[in-house]
């Protein structure tokens, strides 16, 4: 199943379905406008999405890698381009280039435990991992998802979260930063949940995506639990204009997030991650 024809020029894809996840976040299902093939990708990769005449931004693929017929993106409206994307309706056309970048090590993690730590929209690039793990459940040890959002209104994929909670062999821990006093679930930042998760520190792959501060604190907690930097994977974010290594915007120390990342093994970027304004 081939990808899109040109890495430099957006191909038109038609919106088949729009799901409102929260007040500012929408999930779009896309199909090729010209009836071409599906769209194969690896969990963690991203596309450049072009809103006609407005601009283009990097957005992770949030769908199921084993179902490449539809391309799925979850977009949080924060500025001009994401706003235009979130306004699209069924039948509208969106420009797509991709897929780009590295992916989560789902195959390499087989045989051990997997812990997923997501903050906010950071759950979007990790959802393909959850799909993959659940459809290959027998290959893994313990599985855990730790997810934090600012408020209850910010939680993504609520119906699926419920479904995943129902899986006896997937531990799901959800927290919100603030909630009404009557709320009976976890309240607090996502890192407070990490001590609860059960895993074997020597045989665990941890996959982390969220705001940079959240990742910093998560790394500290993981270190305290005895996980080495070579077992931690994280997805990084920087300004990006081309996604093919030419525009220079996404440099992070010696790496280009678009082609060496966005998913890195922590020890590959550890030296620079500890520094400010990189």
């Amino acid at each position: 199943m081939a990808g899109l024809p040109d890495p430099m020029v957006p191909s038109p894809l038609r919106v088949q379905r729009v799901r409102r996840e929260t007040y500012d976040t929408f999930t779009l299902e896309l199909e090729p406008a010209n009836g071409a093939d599906g769209f194969s990708f690896a969990a963690g990769q991203f596309n450049m999405l072009y809103a006609f005449g407005v601009g283009e931004v990097p957005i992770s693929i949030s769908g199921d890698p084993t179902k490449p017929q539809t391309l799925v993106h979850t977009v949080r409206s924060v500025g001009a381009v994401t706003q235009a994307i979130c306004k699209l309706k069924r039948g509208d056309v969106l420009g797509v280039r991709g897929p780009f970048g590295s992916h989560w090590p789902v195959e390499e993690a087989a045989g051990g435990d997997v812990v997923i730590v997501a903050g906010g929209i950071g759950l979007a690039p990790l959802r393909p991992v959850i799909y993959y793990l659940l459809s290959n459940r027998e290959k893994y040890g313990r599985l855990a998802l730790v997810y934090g959002a600012r408020t209850l209104q910010d939680l993504l994929y609520n119906p699926e979260l419920e479904k995943w909670r129902g899986h006896f062999d997937l531990a799901v821990e959800v927290t919100v930063d603030t909630a009404a006093a009557s709320y009976r679930g976890n309240v607090g930042v996502v890192t407070t949940l990490i001590p609860r998760v059960q895993f074997d520190p020597l045989q665990t792959a941890v996959m982390v995506c969220g705001p940079e501060v959240m990742m910093r604190f998560t790394l500290r907690e993981l270190e305290a639990r005895g996980i080495g930097p070579e077992n931690i994977f994280m997805s990084m974010e920087r300004n990006m204009k081309c996604a093919v290594g030419f525009c220079g915007h996404c440099q992070f120390g010696p790496t280009f997030i678009c082609k060496d990342g966005p998913v890195f093994r922590y020890d590959q970027i550890q030296a620079f991650f500890a520094k400010r304004e990189v």
Partner: peptide
Amino acid sequence: CTTVEDVTDLAGEHAERWRKWDSCFTMDFS
């Protein structure tokens, strides 16, 4: 290093993408 500018004509019907030299010294860059 470069940046891109996506533009349309006044009617919003025809779009183009232009690429321009950019500098890591600007605030927009990062």
